[in-house]
C-alpha cells in the first residue's frame, strides 16, 4: 500500500464516520434535544383559567390545554425512544410566559394564549387548538344585548389582554363613550360586575361561561351579543424549532382525525355547559393534515 492510499483511506474513513455521526445527531435539536438530554419535559401552564388550565384538588394542573400538552409529552417520549420521561409543571402568567419559555425554564406553554402576528416575533405557536372570541358578560336584568347598548356605561376588561385592545378599538370606532375599567384578572372583573361597579365585563366567550359556572347564582348572568373578535388559542413554543413544532402539530392532527379531540372537548367544556358547535368542529377538522 502506498502512502497516498493510506491517507486517502483515512480521509474516507473519517468522512464516513463524520456523516454517520451527524446522521444520528441531526434528528434532534432544540426542544427535543433538550428533552432527550434532561429526560424531562417542562410544561408551563396558567393557574386560573378553567376549564383550560387550573389546579385540581390534588394540586396538579388539569384542563383542556393540559390534556393536549400531556399528549404532546407522550409523543415526545415515543419519538425520542425514552424509557422514562419526567413531566414537570411550572405555573406562568402573561408576564413570565415569554422569558421563561425563551430561557428554557419551560418547553411549551399550555394556557389560553391567542396566536397573534406580533407575538410571533418572539415565540412560535402550534396549530390552533381552540377558537373563541370576545363577547359581553352582563347581568340578565340589565337589558344589554349588544355592545351598542353600552353607550356611556362602564365596562371592564383585563389589563394587557387582547380583550382590552378590542374594547378600546371598538369604543373609538363606534364612538360609544364607554368608561373602561382595566381589571387585574378575571376574579376582579367578576367582582366589579357582581357589585354593580361595571355594566359588563368583556373577555373570551368561553372564559365567560366558565365564570358563570362558578357563580353563586349563575341564572342572573348572561353572555350576550355578537362575536367581537377572533381568538385562536394555541400552544406556545420557542421560535426556530420546526422539529418540535411538527411533532406537536402531528399530535393535534391525530387528535382531530381520530375523534379523540371531541372526547377531550366534551370532558372539559361540559363543565361549563358548552356543547360542541358544528363551526368549531369544522375549523378543527381542517387541521388534520395527513401523515
Amino acid at each position: 500500500m502506498t502512502k497516498t492510499a493510506i491517507v486517502a483511506g483515512a480521509i474516507l474513513g473519517a468522512a464516513f464516520a463524520l456523516t454517520l455521526g451527524s446522521a444520528s445527531a441531526q434528528e434532534f435539536y432544540g426542544a427535543l434535544k433538550k428533552i432527550k438530554d434532561s429526560g424531562t419535559i417542562i410544561i408551563g401552564h396558567n393557574e386560573d383559567s378553567p376549564p383550560f388550565a387550573s389546579f385540581g384538588a390534588d394540586g396538579k394542573p388539569l384542563g383542556y390545554s393540559i390534556d393536549i400538552c400531556n399528549k404532546i409529552a407522550a409523543a415526545a417520549k415515543a419519538e425520542l425512544k425514552l424509557d422514562n420521561l419526567t413531566i414537570k409543571y411550572q405555573a406562568v402568567n402573561g408576564q413570565t410566559r415569554t422569558p421563561l419559555l425563551v430561557n428554557g425554564t419551560v418547553d411549551l406553554v399550555c394556557a389560553t394564549t391567542t396566536n397573534t402576528f406580533s407575538r410571533q416575533k418572539q415565540v412560535d405557536f402550534l396549530n390552533t387548538m381552540f377558537v373563541t372570541g370576545n363577547r359581553l358578560l352582563v347581568k340578565k336584568n340589565s337589558g344589554i344585548k349588544e355592545i351598542e347598548d353600552l353607550k356611556g356605561k362602564v365596562v371592564s376588561a383585563n389589563q394587557g389582554t387582547t380583550n382590552e385592545k378590542v374594547l378600546n378599538e371598538l369604543n373609538q370606532k363606534l364612538n360609544l363613550g364607554i368608561k373602561v375599567l382595566s381589571t387585574k384578572d378575571q376574579p376582579q372583573g367578576w367582582i366589579a360586575l357582581e357589585t354593580d361597579r361595571t355594566d359588563a365585563h368583556m373577555t373570551d366567550e368561553v372564559v365567560e361561561y366558565g365564570l358563570i359556572a362558578k357563580a353563586k347564582n349563575p341564572d342572573q348572568y348572561a353572555v350576550v351579543g355578537r362575536l367581537l373578535s377572533f381568538d385562536p388559542y394555541a400552544v406556545v413554543i420557542r421560535r426556530d424549532d420546526s422539529a418540535f413544532r411538527s411533532l406537536g402539530n402531528r399530535v393535534l392532527a391525530d387528535l382531530y382525525r381520530s375523534g379523540e379531540w371531541e372526547q377531550i372537548y366534551t370532558k372539559w367544556m361540559s363543565t361549563i355547559g358548552q356543547p360542541l358547535s358544528p363551526e368549531l368542529k369544522l375549523l378543527m377538522s381542517m387541521q388534520n393534515y395527513p401523515d
Binding site: 415569554t98 416575533k121 418572539q122
Partner: peptide, 17 residues
C-alpha cells in the same frame, strides 16, 4: 394604569417583557 401596569401591558402585547 400607572407605570407598572403600562409596562405589563407592553410586555403582554409585544411579548418583549
Amino acid at each position: 394604569l400607572e407605570l407598572t401596569a403600562r409596562a405589563r401591558a407592553v410586555a403582554d402585547y409585544t411579548y418583549q417583557s
